[in-house]
Design a protein around this nucleic acid. Sequence first.
DNA 1: GCCAACGTTGGC
DNA 2: GCCAACGTTGGC
Length: 157
Amino acid sequence: MNYWLMKSEPDVFGIDHLQKMPKKTDHWDGVRNYQARNMMRDQMKKGDLVFFYHSNCAEPGIVGIMKVVREGYPDHTAFDPSEKYYDPKSDPDNPRWYMVDVQYQRKTKRLISLQELKGYRELEDCPLVRKGNRLSIMPISKKQWDFILKLENRKAA
DNA sequence: GCCAACGTTGGC
DNA sequence: GCCAACGTTGGC
């Protein structure tokens, strides 16, 4: 099993949105970055666990946990000209963009902020805390995953 | 709202 | 294949 972190802007699609979806499940559409695409298409497997991360907001950080419930399949929003992330170069016969389905598991006991995460040596290898990182999906090692989960029970640093 | 960092595009 | 220009991300 693998572990991941996925970013989303809470104003656009936050963890509350996911929680309110039917079956608490939604497809993670709109990713238009090849590195992230490759991970969804090739590496994310059913049952993998994912941190839900709120980005571009007052308090960026990890807010919850979700699970991959469907493996990579074509992102149909790329085919629809009325969609914000329409990409005329993505052909239904040869799709350029992929997505996975994720299901809400739970919120973390507290928001684990980026600022806090940046302070731990255990996480210095994680792309999340590196300057200029813009990857919206990234792998998290089991060690890092377990470490972050333990932070939940601490007081905010 | 600013701006640094980065990815993508397209001319050559 | 290089690289400048441009657009986007995302923290602050």
